Simulated assay, not measured.
Amino acid sequence: MDAGDLATWVGSSFAAIAAGATIWTLKSQRDQIDEQRRFIAEQSATLALERAELRAAARDRKIAQARQVEMKVELTVQSGAPADANGEPIPDTFKIEVRNLSAEPIHEVTVRFGDQEAEEASAAVEVELLRRGLTVVSDGPRLNVPVPLVGAGRIYLFMSGPMLAEVDRHRPALHFTDNAGVRWRLDEYGDLRDFAHPG
């Protein structure tokens, strides 16, 4: 083998080695890029889950106090109320019992009957009948509506004006602002909605 062929052969060998090293480097870089993409995708998925959990936790914190407010509806019949087709008296007044079972006050509390606001409200007085094991809630002092503040653990009563035959069109809904400043609407079936976002 002459020196020229040897030099060509050595040069070709080095070129082949360099080409192999380049291919190996490119493959290694491609593998690293793919691994980084997988890592970024996993991180993105993890961050999306964490964001969803944080939003859910924030929503739970936002609604926690509002869920502890209860409304009980009672229809009352005044003497001389008109009767329905079966001769049964038509209830003509709603009496709504609002219980704030949370550890914080609620504000600007009112009950609406369609487009009408409750006519009156009163702080309730609970009387325990020890012999019968019952608790009776009765009216206390009269208050203006909306009631500016219902303290933690307190009960308030709201009365509608006469409804007569329009009772079904004026089902009650409790409106209040929680201690964080969020306005809520609660209906008699327990449907609780952020009043600013009723959807």
Rank of each mutant, 00 (worst) to 15 (best):
residue 146 P to F: 05
residue 61 R to C: 03
residue 131 R to Q: 11
residue 97 E to I: 11
residue 66 A to Q: 00
residue 143 L to G: 01
residue 19 A to Y: 00
residue 91 P to D: 05
residue 85 A to R: 02
residue 67 R to G: 08
residue 23 I to M: 05
residue 39 F to L: 13
residue 145 V to Y: 00
residue 69 V to M: 00
residue 74 E to N: 02
residue 112 R to A: 13
residue 25 T to R: 14
residue 102 S to I: 02
residue 25 T to E: 08
residue 83 A to G: 07
residue 90 I to M: 11
residue 96 I to E: 02
residue 127 V to R: 15
residue 136 V to F: 11
residue 107 H to E: 13
residue 117 E to Q: 14
residue 86 N to D: 08
residue 76 T to Y: 08
residue 89 P to Q: 07
residue 43 Q to I: 05
residue 54 L to C: 03
residue 130 L to K: 15
residue 84 D to W: 01
residue 70 E to I: 04
residue 69 V to E: 07
residue 19 A to R: 06
residue 32 Q to W: 02
residue 79 S to F: 02
residue 91 P to S: 04
residue 149 L to D: 12
residue 82 P to K: 04
residue 92 D to F: 00
residue 119 E to D: 11
residue 106 I to V: 11
residue 98 V to T: 07
residue 51 R to L: 06
residue 36 Q to E: 13
residue 128 E to T: 15
residue 123 A to T: 08
residue 140 G to P: 09
residue 61 R to M: 00
residue 23 I to Q: 09
residue 135 T to K: 15
residue 51 R to Q: 10
residue 23 I to T: 04
residue 48 A to E: 12
residue 106 I to M: 06
residue 45 A to L: 06
residue 46 T to E: 13
residue 120 E to S: 15
residue 107 H to F: 15
residue 127 V to G: 10
residue 141 P to T: 07
residue 27 K to I: 12
residue 100 N to C: 01
residue 102 S to T: 01
residue 64 A to G: 08
residue 117 E to T: 15
residue 63 I to P: 06
residue 129 L to C: 07
residue 49 L to N: 10
residue 114 G to K: 00
residue 66 A to T: 06
residue 82 P to S: 07
residue 41 A to M: 03
residue 41 A to N: 13
residue 143 L to K: 10
residue 75 L to I: 03
residue 72 K to N: 12
residue 35 E to M: 08
residue 76 T to W: 10
residue 107 H to P: 05
residue 144 N to S: 14
residue 142 R to P: 00
residue 118 A to Q: 01
residue 87 G to H: 05
residue 43 Q to A: 10
residue 68 Q to T: 03
residue 117 E to W: 02
residue 114 G to T: 02
residue 127 V to K: 12
residue 123 A to V: 09
residue 25 T to A: 15
residue 63 I to V: 15
residue 88 E to H: 09
residue 58 A to W: 01
residue 121 A to W: 00
residue 114 G to A: 05
residue 21 A to S: 15
residue 118 A to H: 02
residue 37 R to K: 14
residue 80 G to F: 10
residue 28 S to C: 10
residue 40 I to T: 09
residue 109 V to S: 06
residue 110 T to G: 12
residue 45 A to P: 01
residue 67 R to A: 10
residue 15 A to M: 09
residue 29 Q to C: 12
residue 94 F to Y: 10
residue 29 Q to A: 11
residue 147 V to H: 05
residue 43 Q to E: 14
residue 84 D to V: 04
residue 97 E to G: 06
residue 110 T to E: 15
residue 114 G to V: 02
residue 137 V to Y: 08
residue 66 A to M: 04
residue 132 R to D: 13
residue 132 R to H: 06
residue 104 E to Q: 13
residue 102 S to K: 07
residue 70 E to S: 14
residue 108 E to W: 01
residue 44 S to A: 12
residue 37 R to D: 11
residue 54 L to I: 12
residue 70 E to M: 08
residue 119 E to I: 07
residue 21 A to L: 08
residue 147 V to P: 01
residue 72 K to Y: 14
residue 60 D to F: 00
residue 45 A to F: 02
residue 89 P to E: 06
residue 131 R to D: 11
residue 141 P to V: 11
residue 82 P to V: 06
residue 95 K to M: 05
residue 48 A to V: 07
residue 121 A to G: 01
residue 65 Q to E: 15
residue 70 E to L: 13
residue 95 K to S: 04
residue 80 G to A: 06
residue 100 N to L: 03
residue 107 H to S: 04
